[in-house]
Design a protein around this nucleic acid. Structure first.
Lengths: 195, 195, 195, 195
DNA sequence: GATGAATGAGGCTTCATTCAT
DNA sequence: AATGAATGAAGCCTCATTCAT
């Protein structure tokens, strides 16, 4: 029996690739530079991945899948819309915001290797449902039409992600906590003291 | 005063470079591909620009400068905070939002060739001043601390830019008008019917 | 006596290698592509063969040996030159012509991995002997010197092989039967109605 | 004005490539090895040729074109079929036979980069016309059907080429003169003393 | 023996930049 | 100043072969 493919080597490659792609950009990062720090030969990348592009796609798709599963699990556990919202604010968003490299790649490679709009659509559907339920529960009249709602969600979601990556990259005096606080504040302005 | 004769060639190069950099990415765009459609020799790029990097820097800096000057001119003309705000909403933002390629480059090349945080800082200062004046004029109590204000501005500004570039790139059923409408709505929620 | 169990795997490798070497060329064929269709691991090749080169050499030498043995057996069975000639025309050449892949490899790898001239020399000696006997039997004066005879044999032999491989490869409206017919006609022109 | 493309460099590359492709095979020859002896950098190849494949195609197509033009010019000059035949035997074939590298490539790359059958068809048409005229002029009854004629031509043509390349490659005691002599002899057997 | 992951040299090609003309 | 051929470093990827299991 030959050596079995070593999952830890695969993960190490993905992790280093994510770091470098996010830091220097996909095109500016060479395969050689990815394996250099890992003390692996270049050929190893091609044992685990078809080509450079699939490295990026894997990072983005597996990364998103992780967040998606987290969110769906959280929503299933939630007995009502209020607790669902709180799970999003306490679990999903913090986990997403913690991965600045993923955020950078997702935003920069939109369209080239990552269908960000698909993900945004999926997110809209889920969040929209929660919002409508919340409004119902709390007897609040929502006069947003769906276009405006989508716009709002997109601005808040993308703006939060971009703010966080900018803050991390430029060592701004802003951080994840500030963004979450701002989101909470916005929600409270509409729905009251539910989070 | 007429422009120097060759400024038109310089501008043509900048325009095509901006389009290609935004569409394909900076690294993936070759100098040869920039001049190809313009029927210019590669050497031309180096008579007007030091190297490829300076092409990108010029696009970003001159692009920003244009918007900055527009905004400053607008603000100088404004007699009070309310009209300043309206000028921003009617002149500055629409002009900025119209240039999707610039937005894409500014967001993607953040940190590599463009200090987006500097620009955000400058914007914060100006907008912040208007906000404070507005609050004063209208006798509204602002309990935002400055960190939260900066966060809010960043989320809204970057989120708007990202939403617009995503909408353009992915042919979403969202457009500049929707984003502007959402911004207006948000402002009215705080300051009332001033825009 | 039964063949050793694993000879079938060795043969499968040789067969697939021959097909691919002939179709795509030796260098353009990877070891991996040879075993891919056979559902065998790459390592198998190295249990039966020293390296890639020896795969090719084996195909050519074993292939030639098979034809050589066939021819020699045929000649031993023949009571006279006329029947020897007919055996060649009815057994040896059809068998050789049927293996287009072998022909292609033999012609293309001449000099690199296969001493085609050695084989041609061996063939010349045998055919030459038959020719001389035939001339003697039929009392025909052969004024060919040996150089010209070798040239003639080479042109006919290589020309036939090349024609057949070209016909197969390019789906020409020419086939093995046509080539054999032409050879027969040429012989009849010299020796009369003996085949 | 920049440097003009230097045709002598282009030719030097083609010549060395032809030599190496014929000697070692196309796949086994690296671009680096082609320019090594010419004291040129690798990039030069790509100034004159799109890629490695086009290097081979150019060698084959330009080489064939040269021979084709020679033959057509010769045939136009010939007042009758007999002199046409002699021009072929004295001009065209010797020129073709002299270029052993071209012959090797044409035979080995048949189908991959060179449609040898197209050329054979073109040749058949021209030679066939001469043959028919000769038969007519000399009142000889040709009972060859066209299939057999094509076969004969293919065997003789390809056989001659292969014999010559084999002779050159293996330093056989056979040469171009022998092949031409054999061809002449064959023609005389059919048409009498016309060449 | 059987397996197939691991290796790293080497191949093809691109491209920013220079500089002869 | 204008041009575009020339350059060669560097990138991605393939693949024969080895060897741990």
């Amino acid at each position: 029996m030959p050596q079995r493919k070593d999952d830890s080597r695969r993960e190490a490659i993905l992790l280093e690739a994510k770091r470098l792609f996010a830091t220097q950009g996909y095109e500016a990062t060479s395969i050689a530079s990815i394996v250099a720090g890992l003390n692996m030969p270049v050929g190893s990348v091609y044992t685990y991945f078809k080509d450079k592009q699939s490295l990026l796609v894997t990072i983005l798709e597996e990364g998103w899948e992780e967040f998606r599963l987290q969110l769906e699990a959280a929503l299933q556990m939630a007995p009502d819309a209020t607790s669902a919202l709180n799970l999003i604010l306490e679990r999903f968003l913090p986990a997403l915001f913690a991965d600045a490299d993923f955020i950078t790649l997702a935003l920069n490679e939109t369209g080239r290797s990552f269908a960000l709009n698909d993900k945004l659509g999926w997110l809209s559907a889920h969040i929209g449902l929660i919002i409508r339920k919340l409004a119902e529960e709390r007897n609040i009249q929502m006069d947003f039409d769906s276009r405006l709602a989508n716009t709002a969600l997109s601005v808040f979601f993308l703006g939060s992600l971009d703010t966080i990556r900018l803050a991390k990259r430029e060592n701004l005096d802003l951080n994840t906590a500030d963004v979450l606080k701002f989101i909470r504040l916005t929600i409270r302005n509409v729905f009251g003291d539910i989070c």
